[in-house]
Structures are given as structure tokens and as C-alpha cells.
């Protein structure tokens, strides 16, 4: 019994049944392609796009003719080329991290020939979601930034893993909740080192405090303490405090850890 039809249920009921029953019967056959020259780009999220391509018979001949040459997907904005990604034309699909949220993007599938790049396919245009708060404010409305920040925080306050993931992707590649580590078995000789990071501070008690866009809980006196597992690398932690009277303060902290083998 599993009609887990939205993405939220597995979160709640992730140990879903692995039902022994396999659906019986043959799967209908679909064509492997539609013999059309086509390069299609699709948005996956603010960073990633998915693309797939197909060739007509003539173009497949061209592809085969140059099969030993390098093929690329060129990632283009209206102004410039963002990247050239080496691909295998027979793969027929590819995921690309555009590193370009908010940008309007198109692709070209090209092969590098002796006389330069030969464009085989051009894609549709797609606009990546920004993944962030717009910097545009409506002139017809009076926007109160401080107020907005406060409400924005409140909304973030109930953040599901979406927000955590997004924050992680942006800044905190090396920050994670402290997780109990498994020590090696006692019978082996070992040396085990690790470290954690504790940050504490204080702000106006009624302010809203953000650490890398995540809300930080304050005690009634405005004090806070954060506890992270600290992995190798350099991390910067940005703190923004928004007071009720509209004032804001920003402070940043950079920490580096390097564990020598």
C-alpha cells in the first residue's frame, strides 16, 4: 500500500515498503529517437539544466564523420559563452550546472573540426530561476525593507530541507550539524582527530538574526550559540541582525581548518 504521490510523504514515511510484487507484463516499445534535429534545454533548478538532443539521418552521418573529434555543449547567454562542456554526442542527454541563476541561457552542440567549431544543433532559450529575493522593488508601492527582512526570516523559520539544501549549496559547503562519529574498532591501533566549531554572541533581544540566511534562535537576552562540525577548508559565516526599529548590523567570521595526514 503506497500511494506516495507527493514528495513530502517520503520525508515522513521514508521507510516505504519495498513491495515484492513486480508489475507483470511487457513494456510497450517506444522509438529511441524521432529522427529530427533537436536540442532541447529544460530548467531543473536555479543552477542545473537538463538537455537532450536528437539528430536526423543526415546529421547522424555528420556526427559519425567527426566521431573522433571532440564534441561540446556551449553554454551561452545573450552576451557571452559561459562554458564549453565536453560531451559524447551519442549520450543524447546531459545535466549541466550553469552556475547562472536568473540568467537566460541557450545551448549549442558543436564539434571541433580542423577548420573550427561546427555548430550541429541550437537549443531553445530558458530562463533559470533566480533562487533569491528580487532586487527589484515596485515603484507603485512603498517597500519597507526592514519589515520585509523580518517577514522573510519568519518564512524561512519553518524551513524544510529545501532551505537547508539551498543554504548549503550557496555557502556552507563545509558546515554541517555535529554528527556523532563512529570510532574505529578498539582492537586496531588508531589516532582519531576531529573538531567542532562553537560560535556565540549577543544581539538586541527583539532582533531577528540570520547566519548565512538561516534564522538563528536567540534566548530572551538576545544571546545565541551555534555548534557545527568543522570540516577541512575555509568557511565564512555571515551574520545579519535586523532590529525591530529598522536598524541592521552585519558581521562576518572566517574560519579555516586543515587536518594534516
Amino acid at each position: 500500500m503506497t500511494f506516495s504521490l507527493t514528495t513530502h510523504k517520503p520525508d515522513l514515511f521514508k521507510n516505504d515498503l519495498n513491495h515484492p510484487l513486480k508489475y507483470k507484463g511487457h513494456e510497450a516499445a517506444l522509438p529511441s529517437g524521432y529522427a529530427t534535429n533537436r536540442l532541447i534545454a529544460m530548467v531543473r533548478d536555479p543552477y542545473w539544466l537538463f538537455c537532450y538532443w536528437d539528430f536526423d539521418n543526415n546529421s547522424w552521418e555528420t556526427v559519425n564523420q567527426y566521431i573522433k573529434q571532440p564534441f561540446f555543449l556551449r553554454l551561452l547567454t545573450e552576451e557571452n559563452e559561459l562554458a564549453k562542456i565536453p560531451i559524447n554526442p551519442q549520450a543524447r542527454s546531459w545535466y549541466i550546472n550553469t552556475y547562472a541563476p536568473g540568467k537566460t541561457i541557450s545551448l549549442e552542440l558543436v564539434v571541433c573540426t580542423a577548420s573550427g567549431f561546427l555548430v550541429l544543433l541550437k537549443s531553445n532559450l530558458i530562463t533559470m530561476p533566480t533562487g533569491s529575493v528580487s532586487s527589484f522593488t515596485d515603484e507603485l508601492w512603498l517597500s519597507i525593507n526592514e519589515l520585509y527582512s523580518e517577514k522573510y526570516c519568519l518564512s524561512l523559520g519553518g524551513s524544510p530541507h529545501y532551505w537547508q539544501k539551498e543554504a548549503k549549496r550557496e555557502e556552507a559547503h563545509y558546515l554541517a550539524s555535529p554528527i556523532p562519529q563512529l570510532l574505529p574498532s578498539a582492537k586496531d591501533h588508531y589516532l582519531w582527530l576531529d573538531t567542532e566549531l562553537i560560535i556565540y554572541g549577543k544581539t538586541t533581544p527583539d532582533a531577528v538574526l540570520l547566519q548565512n540566511d538561516q534564522v538563528v534562535a536567540l534566548d530572551p537576552e538576545g544571546q545565541f550559540q551555534l555548534h557545527f562540525k568543522l570540516n577541512d577548508g575555509k568557511q565564512s559565516l555571515n551574520f545579519e541582525s535586523y532590529a525591530k526599529n529598522g536598524l541592521s548590523k552585519t558581521k562576518a567570521l572566517t574560519v579555516e581548518r586543515s587536518l594534516q595526514p
Partner: peptide, 26 residues
């Protein structure tokens, strides 16, 4: 409004990933 969904990570990746991306050309 921004492009979005209530799926995991907030965009399209639940319905566009390795197990199911083959459906879109069709």
C-alpha cells in the same frame, strides 16, 4: 512569481532526474 514547486529542493528535480528524464523527449 518565481518558477517553483513544493517538491524536494523546491524546483523540478523530483520529476527531472536520472530515473525519469527519458520520458520528456517522448
Amino acid at each position: 512569481p518565481s518558477a517553483s514547486s513544493w517538491g524536494y529542493n523546491g524546483y523540478n528535480e523530483v520529476w527531472l532526474e536520472g530515473s525519469n528524464d527519458w520520458i520528456y523527449p517522448h
